[in-house]
Computed example of a mutant assay.
Amino acid sequence: MAEDDKYPESSGRRRFVKGVVGSAGMAGIGAAGAVSVSGLTNPTGQGGGQTTYFGVENTDGPAPRAMPMIPIEIDDQGYIKGRYPETKEIQRQGQTVTVARMDLGGITYEVDWFQYCGVQDYQGLDPDYEGDNYFRYTGGPSSYDWQPSSGRVNVSDFENYETWTNGIGPSGIGKPAMASWRSQDTNDTIPVQIIRSTRIQEKLETETGPAIDWLKAATQDGFMAILNKCTHFCCVPGFRSSTYGDAGNRIYCPCHQSIYNPFSIVKRRFTAFPRPEDS
């Protein structure tokens, strides 16, 4: 695991639901299969119960499972932000504990979704985080040439999404950006891949089922977002970033050639760390 994933738990904070995903369940086909996966990203959840989530499907390479989605909302000025689950405090064994979860799109959306690669210990996922939920552009070698290196992400930046191309894959399949979420003044950055595509809109108009119910609640105006950490070795992949295999119109991780289809939304589950009410 990369050094920037090894952060100690913050001191002086209320106990919060955290942990790393279980080695069973997360890698399976559908919501029931289980295969052996790398302990690096999937140490056991040790009895925390099953957590179900929606993510973008891994279609090639060694990545054991889908990358989880982050539901979005757009404010009146067109700025895009990720939705953090609703929080409430409960009493358990003489302690005040905070639970972050909510019903959204027919599923329980909770911070447990992000229990891998050490992200569960990032300051931005703590309910006491003092920043906001807006996505902000990030610079660096993995960002796209068109995007700003800083500032909040706005709908107007994607006006040409129906025709945009960077020479990789066919034009018109979507415009991406690299951003961060809940990472202001923290020691770590929660990486986000944002995509705006007509394919998302088309799925909502032509398909039905649980994944579509989720998309209706978690996307808006053709925008979707995912937690951008590969589930194999925690690298940062990119949409339309390589011509390797069939990655031209998909999300590609350059570390070990894992590929994800952002337009194939799948329901998966894993064994999470114990929740406060289970302890």
Rank of each mutant, 00 (worst) to 15 (best):
Q93F: 13
Q91L: 10
P64N: 03
Q95M: 14
T98M: 14
G82R: 01
Y79F: 11
G106S: 15
Q46L: 05
T59S: 00
D75G: 06
Q77E: 14
P85C: 09
Q91T: 13
G48E: 06
P85T: 05
R101A: 15
Y84P: 04
E89Y: 09
V99H: 02
G78W: 02
P68N: 03
V99C: 13
F54P: 00
Q50G: 14
R101N: 14
P71M: 00
Q77I: 11
P71A: 00
V99D: 13
P64M: 03
G55N: 04
T52L: 04
T87F: 10
R83T: 13
Y79I: 10
Q91E: 13
T96L: 14
V56H: 05
V99P: 06
G61I: 00
T108V: 13
L104P: 06
R83I: 10
G49N: 02
V56A: 08
G61R: 00
I74K: 04
R65H: 06
Q50H: 09
Y84I: 08
E73Q: 13
P62S: 03
Q46K: 06
M102R: 15
I107H: 11
T108E: 13
R101P: 12
A100L: 12
T59V: 03
E73V: 05
G49L: 07
R92L: 11
R101Y: 15
G61D: 00
I107D: 09
G61Q: 01
D76H: 03
G55I: 00
K81W: 05
P71I: 00
Q77V: 09
G82W: 02
I80K: 05
Q91P: 06
V56L: 10
I90R: 08
D76W: 08
E89T: 09
A100N: 10
F54M: 06
V56E: 06
Q95P: 11
G94I: 04
T98F: 12
